[in-house]
Simulated assay, not measured.
Amino acid sequence: MSSAQAPAPSLGKLLITGGCGFLGHHIVNLVVERHPSTRIHVLDLHTNSNRNPSSIVSYHNGDITDAAALGSLVSRIKPDAIIHTASPHFNAKNDIHYRVNVDGTKNLLKAAQDAGVKAFVYTSSASVILDHKTELVNADETWPLVAGDAQPEYYTTTKAYAETAVLSANRSPANFLTSAIRPAGIFGEGDVQLLPKMVTAFRKNQSKFQVGANDNLFDFTYVKNVAHGHLLAVQALLHTHRMLPTIPLDTEKVDGEAFFITNGQPVYFWDFARAVWHEAGDRLPLSSVWHLGQDFAFLIGGTLEWIFWCLGKTPNLTRQQVKYSTMTKYHSIEKARRRLGYSPIVDLDDGVRRGVQFILEEEKRAQQKKGQ
């Protein structure tokens, strides 16, 4: 093993909330790979899936909206650091988003402060700066948060509120350090929102349609790069903690700061979709692709939403999908490069290949099991 591949120092005791979820279990796996001397505790509502078999990982069933039980668990574990990824599914009801993302995060902050936790890293969202109208062109962390009526998605409003709570808690007390990671368009193995829907669209012969002119750059981020960003933030906060009471220069500061994490490879939206479809087996020539105007597709999406609402279902084309597939939305990762030392470790093409192959292999295993 070369020095560049040698295991990094222990992070001490690390608590990962949502550690059985999509992003969370990738973070667990990366800690096991890089920091094998770390003692990992995973907290999730249900811990029977995406488990890492390593002996350094312990699993705890729990609900972060239960302040008393959460406080008891955190005080018993006494973690050095917490990575907080737990969040409801994007399509959950508004009250659930608020209870988990806002109230649950505040419960976890209080438990961490009471237990003497040193470092707290929160999984926010790149969409916290997205409004109804403004396209995001190389957007950075100086852009203001957008919440409430100006924010298109209630889920993202609650992520913005939670991020604000996390960063406001920095150095309160003085030895409690916090940071937020803002990933954009996460995909990869175990993804339940992006790649599976695209593969399903291909299977339904929908890859022959395109909405808009495909001139909008968009950020998609491979999940292991997001996990990498979280671990860099934890390491930076623990390093800052060791330097206390010294305060870093503003240009080096990680505590109290948010960071966009992407692949650093913005791509035209439909080019990404076609890369996914190609990996899934699509060989349709571009000359056969039907182009739908944005306004026309928006009208169709609205009509389908109304019809399917009457039927109690969700259509394959919605106004939200039209909007996101035609808008420019990409971010700068220069702050993360400078202060965290972040650089993507898996490029976009390799990430797409890994993610789609995972889906195909899962389908193959399911078919084999069904045939037994």
Rank of each mutant, 00 (worst) to 15 (best):
S2I: 01
A4G: 13
Q5C: 11
Q5S: 13
A6P: 00
P9T: 02
G19I: 05
L23F: 11
I27F: 04
N29C: 08
P36D: 02
T38S: 14
I40W: 03
I40F: 01
L43S: 00
L45W: 14
L45R: 15
H46I: 14
R51A: 11
P53A: 09
S54H: 09
I56V: 14
S58H: 14
Y59D: 04
Y59I: 02
N61G: 07
D63L: 02
D63I: 00
I64T: 07
T65M: 01
A69C: 07
G71R: 08
L73N: 01
I83C: 00
H84Y: 06
H84I: 01
S87T: 06
N91H: 12
N94G: 03
D95P: 01
I96N: 04
H97G: 01
R99Q: 12
R99Y: 05
G104D: 00
T105M: 02
A112Y: 01
A115W: 02
G116E: 05
V117G: 00
V117P: 01
Y122Q: 07
S124E: 00
S125R: 03
H132Y: 07
K133D: 14
V137E: 13
V137D: 06
V137C: 11
A139M: 06
G148M: 08
G148S: 11
A150V: 10
Q151C: 15
P152C: 12
E153R: 09
T158S: 09
Y161R: 05
Y161V: 06
E163R: 02
S168T: 15
A169E: 02
A169F: 06
T178R: 06
S179P: 08
R182L: 15
P183T: 09
G190Y: 11
P196D: 07
K197L: 13
T200I: 09
A201P: 06
R203I: 08
S207P: 01
D215P: 00
D215I: 13
F220M: 09
T221A: 10
K224T: 13
N225S: 02
V226N: 05
L231P: 07
L232D: 03
A233T: 05
A236S: 15
H239N: 13
H239L: 09
H241T: 03
L244R: 08
I247M: 15
I247H: 08
G256L: 03
E257P: 02
F260S: 04
T262E: 05
T262Y: 05
T262N: 09
N263L: 07
N263C: 10
Y268Q: 12
A273F: 14
V276F: 04
E279C: 10
P285R: 10
P285T: 05
L286R: 15
S288H: 13
H291A: 08
F296W: 14
F298D: 14
L299G: 03
L304P: 08
L311V: 01
K313I: 02
P315K: 08
P315G: 07
N316A: 07
N316Q: 11
L317R: 05
L317D: 04
T318F: 05
R319S: 00
R319I: 00
K323Q: 09
K329W: 08
H331M: 10
S332N: 09
S332D: 13
S332W: 04
I333N: 06
E334N: 12
L340Q: 02
P344D: 06
V346M: 07
G351R: 05
R353L: 11
G355W: 10
I359N: 04
E362Y: 10
E363M: 14
A366G: 05
K370E: 14
G371I: 11
